[in-house]
Nucleic acid binder design. Structure first.
Lengths: 329, 329
DNA sequence: ATGAAAGCGCTAACAA
DNA sequence: TTGTTAGCGCTTTCAT
């Protein structure tokens, strides 16, 4: 590997001049510039980015924390983010917490060791109080996920509204015994959905049987289990509001296997409007989340932050959310 | 941020001693070691990894090139890889080529600028001849994808066999007019599948109508189009071999919409055994690829390479492939 | 317009 | 067992 010094020698100039050519600095005579460029080509010179990082104290790398990449919601989000990051010469490091607090903290330590310039939190396992100190080391923003105590830029949807319109839709369709699937922790996004859900129930004067609440439901397999559980109940729900299309798809698939009619015997409402929602049979009615916009906007906010533009304090961007009706309700 | 020098001063030792403590070097007196550790804690010291990189000429980072992360096959593969990489203290940079030659080359340039220690090629857009020079800069291995001219470690499946047993299955089920969906370039994996497909056809003495070959089929939407195209043909196939579960799922979903009976009017064979294969209705018969194993083994091979163990020359690992029968055939 | 020199934070010969 | 010293490759004052 040739270094900046090799180029300087070959071109008969100083390292400084080579560096200036590299960084499009003004005040470099055209003649020398050409000389330097010729030398670079001849030596197949490529600047060592680690040296640049050390000198410039910046890494051109951002980390995005998600639970797991194989969740289609997050893989689509990361696809959009990575494309946009690449357009701006930024590297994206994907960090999967796998729903584990400890792993999340290990990833956050990347900012301490100066390995990344910023963090996009698209999931949060730890309590915000245990995380906020990391904001001293690099900008952290929320994307989709959020915590009301956190005073950091946040790009998200109105999850309360999403859950509210979804639940209301079920009620308007005539369903009266509505079950709910959600994550274990009642914070941020999950808490807002819960509020929206119960608000709609309350307004309609509907009661809720605590047995209808299913926790820690994330995967297709969880959905299958939920359906079987429901079938075994004496007070059986006639509809179910899920926190994700994956769980909903599991329910629908298991229903087909067990010859349970959807939506006649059970209506199913998804969340996310993932690709899978259009592929299951019957098609899944679900709450659309504009993943493209949310991903792009998050990267934009992060880039602005890194450029010293934008506000590091709380700065909320809320994107539209709406219902997509198919045949499962 | 405190540096190694601050720690040294506070502990009353030299930078070298601090560095030795950091790297578990032998020959550090217990007393001084304790002193150093106390100073580190007091200053909340964290080593700057960029400086370590520059000095050690290594980045602890590997890149994995894939077409796009939102393809469930690749998102699952990356999930497995990232988990294993994290266990070994390695960062994984996800690089999406988006089926674009130029983008692929841009990512490969990361090795030139010393930003990564190694590359896992899980897709290849460019001709191998245009890529092989990069092997001079860092170890490159193939994962799933491959090129017979490349003399690099390769972890893959026997795609010929996969296509052969899949096609044979269709034939044994009584289908005679078998269509095929595949990518545009007839190289590596795609070429081997094609050979397996035609070998099975030849052995059964079946003929193939060129109209039954559908190229550049990657997405669910492509599958939908393929089905509509088939319905419009006068010489209509009675089965279709697809290169991916996504395309197959698109076909099945569109068939449901248009009331085409699967498998009676058309049998559908997928490839990958993605989660979606079990969710569509009817369930998709498909060729299982052991993504977990392939991902883990690739990381292992890469780690061995980075440690100077293992052979940089061609070194083929072939994993088992088999048919999973559901209801679509 | 150009260059000399200092230094980003760390590790590893080498010497003691 | 410990410290001194010399860089890794680059950018950026500060002179000229």
């Amino acid at each position: 590997m040739s270094t900046i010094e090799d180029v300087a020698k070959l071109a008969g100039v100083s390292k400084t001049t080579v560096s200036r050519v590299l960084n499009d600095h003004p005040y470099v005579a055209e003649g020398k510039k050409a000389l330097v460029q010729k030398a670079m080509e001849e030596l197949l010179y490529v600047p060592n980015s680690t040296a640049q990082r050390l000198r410039k104290q910046t890494t051109q790398t951002i980390a995005v924390l998600i639970p797991r990449i194989s969740n289609p919601f997050f893989s689509k989000m990361v696809e959009v983010m990575e494309n946009m990051a690449a357009d701006h010469g930024l590297q994206l490091v994907v960090c999967q917490t796998m729903y584990d607090k400890q792993r999340e903290l290990v990833y956050l330590d990347l900012v301490k060791t100066k390995q990344i310039d910023g963090v996009i939190l698209a999931s949060l396992e730890n309590d915000w109080e245990d995380v906020k100190d990391y904001t001293n080391f690099a900008p952290i923003i929320f994307c989709n996920e959020y915590d009301d105590r956190a005073k950091v830029p946040t790009v998200r949807l109105n999850q309360f509204e999403g859950a509210y319109i979804g639940t209301k839709h079920l009620i308007e369709k005539g369903y009266r015994k509505i079950a709910k699937c959600r994550g274990a922790n009642l914070t941020g996004l999950v808490a807002d959905r819960q509020r929206g859900f119960f608000q709609a129930l309350d307004e309609a004067g509907l009661s809720f049987d605590n047995d209808w609440m299913f926790l820690e439901t994330q995967l297709v397999e969880d959905g299958r289990k939920v359906l079987r559980k429901m079938l075994s109940m004496k007070n059986r729900p006639d509809a179910v509001f899920t926190g994700s299309d994956e769980v909903a798809a599991g329910i629908i698939s298991e229903a087909a296997r067990l010859h349970v009619k959807i939506p006649d015997e059970l209506a199913v409402l998804g969340f996310d409007n993932q690709q899978i929602a259009a592929l299951v049979n019957p098609g899944l009615t679900t709450i659309h989340q504009p993943i493209d916009q949310i991903g792009k906007l998050s990267i934009k906010v992060m880039i602005d932050l890194l450029h010293g533009e934008g506000n590091v304090d709380k700065h909320l961007k809320e994107l539209p959310i709406y219902l997509v009706e198919r045949s499962s309700t």
